[in-house]
Design a protein around this nucleic acid. Structure first.
Lengths: 251, 251
DNA sequence: CGATTTTCATTTGTCAGACAATTAAAAGTC
DNA sequence: GACTTTTAATTGTCTGACAAATGAAAATCG
């Protein structure tokens, strides 16, 4: 663990990198206690505030957790699926919104990923997963639901579908992708007609999963992907038209 | 942007959360400059070191970048695919290693995700992607390659396959998943025989992608998944056997 | 002696103030 | 006008201090 005071890189960043490397290569194990801030400061030859900045960097990635008091300190944190999902959602959401990823690309990615776990879901789905999917379908078919609530239920349905695959890695990766797309999905205003079509497709997919018919579920998901892309394209076209109008009026 | 000094949550964490929320909901746009540390300290009613800890938390997630000097400060950073990938790899790697995710589960997730982009890759692959895949196959078939180098080439091959799908979201998500698995893959020692089988399968997949035959590429990938799982199972069985031996000798 | 309370030492959280390093803009100079 | 110098703003780092939390040891009491 060496740092270079003459490097242009900030000292706190160097220290964070050194400790992160130690965690990732296993030199520091889960729940192991790091030296106290004062000890770290001395061993790195920097002041305590600098060490603290480094530790906050690591805390932001939930690589460590800290505890006050005697026998307190910084401990290597076990990476939980929940935390990892949060991080992934934050990163993915910003990646989509800041880079102007178009709806079609995001949609394509989302459904491609989701279709990856359909075979597993068909093979392994439990009654609980099916019940969760049915519950969301029921909610989606109730009248007077706001667009946000409809979207949230849509996410929950797909989450249940992914969880049915019974692979936590897939759940973690796909939950991130699906949730990150929610802001994009929220741009769509769902008519009663389009909602009906969507929950009908959801029903078809749930039926297929229940029947352990992966091929049929895949076809249902493909249809849903196509229909979602179509809805998105309509919204984008309408927006583009409005922009042209404004521009024409202004000129 | 309000913070509560009486909350058990650290002030720097609250401040980071407030600013993060402002970035994610669009109140702070890309490249926009945040107030100076002194101004933030005053407006939040805390000291400058506390503000700095909050900013380091955000910097660790690459939500902001800072610049020294007059007209310097903290700026909202555009989330790049490269940065997002780094984060995803760090998180996923630790998630796998710290939670004792078994080889079979990780392998299943990886190949499920990869198969999701085979249809797109078959449809859109360019000559460049094919060339990249062929180059890695050539490397894999050279003699005297270390296990690490073989694994790295394997990752590069799959990376090219994923990139061929032409969807940056998929590339980002899958690159993370594939690279995070590398430590697990490195536990396998590849015999000349298994290497030959692997690069032969790679060749079959590349041929299918070149011929735009998604079904054949999918079959190749499925075979590769099965073979990889088999190799992993052998390694795990051997390990388990060694453990039992040690235990028996000890008793 | 055992249980309870008190004290205490350790460690993180926060603050105040200072100085160094960097950098862009303003002022000065030729 | 082009170049150099100065200056002001801003982050990076340090020092020293105190508050708050917390577990362990010491003291007290039944």
């Amino acid at each position: 663990m060496k740092i270079d005071p003459d490097s242009p890189e900030e000292l706190s960043a160097q220290i964070a990198r050194a400790i992160r490397a130690a965690i990732m290569d296993g030199s520091l194990k889960v729940d192991e206690r790091l030296p106290s801030e004062a000890e770290l400061a001395e061993s790195f030859g920097v002041s305590r505030p600098t060490v603290r900045e480094a530790l906050k960097r690591l805390a932001a990635q939930s690589l460590i957790r800290t505890q006050r008091g005697a026998s307190g300190g910084a401990f290597v944190a076990r990476q939980s699926y929940a935390q990892a999902r949060e991080q992934l959602i934050t990163t993915s959401t910003l990646l989509l919104s800041m880079n102007g990823v178009d709806f079609a690309t995001a949609c394509e990615a989302r459904y491609a990923l989701e279709r990856a776990c359909v075979p597993l879901a068909a093979a392994r789905r439990s009654a609980d997963h099916l019940a969760a999917m049915r519950a969301e379908i029921a909610r989606q078919s109730t009248a007077g639901l706001s667009d946000e609530a409809f979207c949230a239920s849509d996410v929950a349905f797909h989450r249940a579908l992914v969880d049915a695959a019974g692979n936590p890695i897939l759940s973690y990766q796909l939950a991130g992708a699906v949730e990150a797309m929610q802001p994009l999905m929220n741009m769509i205003t769902f008519t009663a007609r389009s909602r009906e079509r969507i929950w009908a497709l959801h029903g078809r997919i749930a039926d297929a999963i229940e029947a352990r018919d992966a091929a049929e579920a895949d076809r249902g998901l493909a249809d849903l992907a196509a229909y979602t892309a179509e809805l998105g394209a309509d919204v984008m076209a309408a927006r583009a038209a409005r922009r042209v109008n404004r521009h024409t009026e202004g000129a």
